[in-house]
């Protein structure tokens, strides 16, 4: 059930180079279940920016009705969001979209969670739920540089974590795919969220028999009505069939849509 609610800011903390962790309190937490869903955030009370910002849910704490979102301060909207302090309210619409199918990984199986940059946050809640189900979790996360690295320790609570940085200033130099290429085992399932080139490389399905990807696209409404975030399907790459990233996704099975 989608709700609109003015959620109260519990904390808004910088955790990396322009990376902020925002903890919000609100009743709509009760409706959150799948990791990989997102909320649509109205950052301004006025007309600029006008549209909401889609941000994925990083953690759900139903016991105290709070949830966490992590965002990069990079434009006008996220700069305004970064100014919010504890006690203030933020207009939230959500939860939206279809998240990662946690039940696709059975107890005793191994899952690799791949996150790139601000694609890392949904992996936290996913890792938490998989670990609860007795799935072995291996996280592979990539960033531009050392100062941008976040959530390595948090993910380590649920299993091994491998880090790559493009400039080699932390972890392995290169991309998450370089780390994956070095693994001498095959996982049962792969979940990924991150930049498009990364997703394209993982979309090949080379890293596990089952692969799920979370896509990002510019959105308007976030609920499937405006057709801003539409993509082609692999079965009909030039035809009329389509998927909406916001409401059919943002998580798709590898090979389902054209990335």
């Amino acid at each position: 059930m989608i709700k609109q609610e003015n959620c109260r800011v519990v904390s808004n903390t910088q955790i990396g180079d322009n990376i902020f962790e925002l903890v919000l309190s609100g009743e709509l937490t009760a409706n959150m279940s799948e990791p990989g869903q997102f909320v649509h955030v109205k950052v301004s009370n006025g007309f600029d920016p006008l549209l909401r910002r889609p941000i994925s849910i990083a953690a759900i704490e139903k016991e105290n009705s709070t949830f966490t979102i992590i965002y990069r301060r990079q434009g006008r909207g996220t700069a305004l969001l970064a100014e919010k302090s504890a006690g203030e309210e933020v207009d939230i619409l959500g939860p939206l979209g279809n998240g990662f199918p946690v039940m696709e990984a059975a107890q005793g199986q191994t899952a690799i969670l791949i996150g790139g940059g601000v694609g890392v946050p949904p992996m936290y809640e996913l890792a938490k739920q998989l670990a609860q189900n007795g799935v072995s979790v291996i996280s592979v996360i990539g960033f531009q540089t050392e100062s941008a690295v976040f959530y390595e320790k948090e993910l380590a609570r649920f299993g091994e974590v491998y880090v790559a940085t493009v400039d080699g200033s932390y972890g392995r130099k290169g991309f998450v795919t370089d780390i994956l290429a070095g693994f001498d085992f095959q996982a049962d399932i792969v979940f990924a969220c991150g930049p498009t080139p990364m997703l394209r490389a993982i979309d090949t399905g080379n890293f596990a028999p089952k692969t799920y990807l979370s896509l990002e696209e510019r959105m308007g409404c976030g609920i499937g009505a405006c057709f801003a975030c539409v993509c082609h399907t692999k079965e009909d790459p030039h035809g009329y069939t389509y998927k909406k990233v916001c409401s059919d996704g943002p998580v798709f099975k590898a090979g389902e849509v054209v990335i």
Binding site: P49, L51, R218
Partner: peptide, 9 residues
């Protein structure tokens, strides 16, 4: 896509 872009207001 991109099919939408924002402007002030």
């Amino acid at each position: 896509t991109p099919r939408v872009a924002e402007t002030p207001g």
